[in-house]
């Protein structure tokens, strides 16, 4: 296990922020921790980073315990907080050099150049940190997080403040990192994007994990997911097929479109599409009206997510 959390509990005066959560990640896993504001995501992340001492429970990174081997633990963990801290007055390169020295990275100049290139900040190397836009600061802090090439990454709202192009860049970076065998725990309010780079999810509400596991498995367990089909009038109508299909429930019908719910997994979805094509439906659009993650989130009744 790269990341192993067991029965984690975090208390603040008068509040149990996180209450007995457990999850484990293998190399290449992307775990999305989602939940409304105040659900305990940041407290969980801070406990993972060793910034908050758990009241109870155990956190291990690469099998290491922060109490026993704090330095090795920190070398294996990259933590990106929600509020990107920068050091005003230093340039981007100086900021990274500060942390490269702290991590005692050999060949730090080359490594700094590499992470600046990876995050698209090469031309901002000599720009003062405080002059960077919020999105660029996020990328700079991401560069700092990747500086020591940690096998386990904990990213709290990494897409916050990023424009759509930067978000796509972030998604690509995270998928590359997963492909390299790193384990990533991430939180975000933008559920639709998370499942493009995560294969697992944990839904946190009031400090308790209401569901945790593979996204597709949980979505299937929870039942219906929303779908939209648009077709060309030149072909056959899909409505008879959908009405005959036992697992579908039609929600709204338009002149050339239909919204329906399907209560099974991805394989059933593929089979239904194949059947529609076979009966002569000319499909123009076939998509989920909500991502799997949104579906999981809404099905569990969690609130206040954007």
């Amino acid at each position: 296990m790269l990341i192993d959390v067991t029965d984690l509990r975090v208390d603040y005066p008068g509040l149990i922020a996180v209450d007995g959560i457990s999850f484990a990640l293998e190399p290449g896993d992307g775990y999305a921790l989602v939940g409304p504001n105040g659900a305990g995501k940041t407290s969980t992340f801070r406990a993972l980073a060793g910034l908050v001492e758990p009241t109870r429970g155990r956190v291990r990174i690469c099998g290491l315990d922060i109490e026993r081997e704090p330095e090795e633990y920190r070398r294996r963990l990259g933590y990106m907080p929600d509020d990107s801290p920068i050091i005003s007055g230093l340039t981007s390169a100086q900021f990274l050099d500060h942390f490269a020295r702290a991590y005692e990275i050999a060949g730090r100049i080359d490594r700094i150049d590499a992470v600046l290139a990876l995050t698209g900040l090469t031309d901002k190397a000599d720009a003062p940190c405080q002059s960077l836009s919020r999105g660029m600061r996020q990328r700079l802090v991401m560069a700092k997080t990747l500086l020591h090439d940690p096998p386990a990454l904990v990213l709290d709202e990494p897409a916050s403040g990023l424009d759509p192009i930067s978000r796509r860049g972030l998604r690509d970076i995270l998928n590359v990192l997963r492909a390299q065998g790193k384990a990533i725990v991430v939180s975000s309010h933008i559920l639709g994007e998370i499942d493009s780079f995560c294969n697992k999810v944990g839904v946190l509400e009031r400090g308790v994990l209401r569901a945790s596991g593979r996204i597709d498995s949980i979505a299937a367990e929870l039942g219906h997911r929303g779908m939209r089909l648009r077709w060309s009038p030149a072909g056959a109508s899909p409505l008879p097929t959908l009405e005959q299909h036992a697992a579908t429930r039609i929600k709204a019908v338009g002149p050339d479109s239909v919204d329906f719910e399907l209560g099974t997994d991805d394989d059933a979805l593929d089979l239904l599409l194949a059947e529609l094509v076979r009966v002569g439906v000319r499909v123009r659009e076939w998509r989920k009206t909500a991502s799997d993650l949104e579906h999981v989130f809404l099905a569990l009744g969690a609130k206040e997510v954007r």
């Binding site: 910034l51 704090p70 920190r74 801290p85 702290a102």
Partner: peptide, 14 residues
């Protein structure tokens, strides 16, 4: 306040 102290604490610095 701005989290820089935590960022430094996250490094292997003793």
């Amino acid at each position: 306040k701005d989290g820089t102290l935590d960022a430094n604490r996250l490094t292997p610095m003793s």
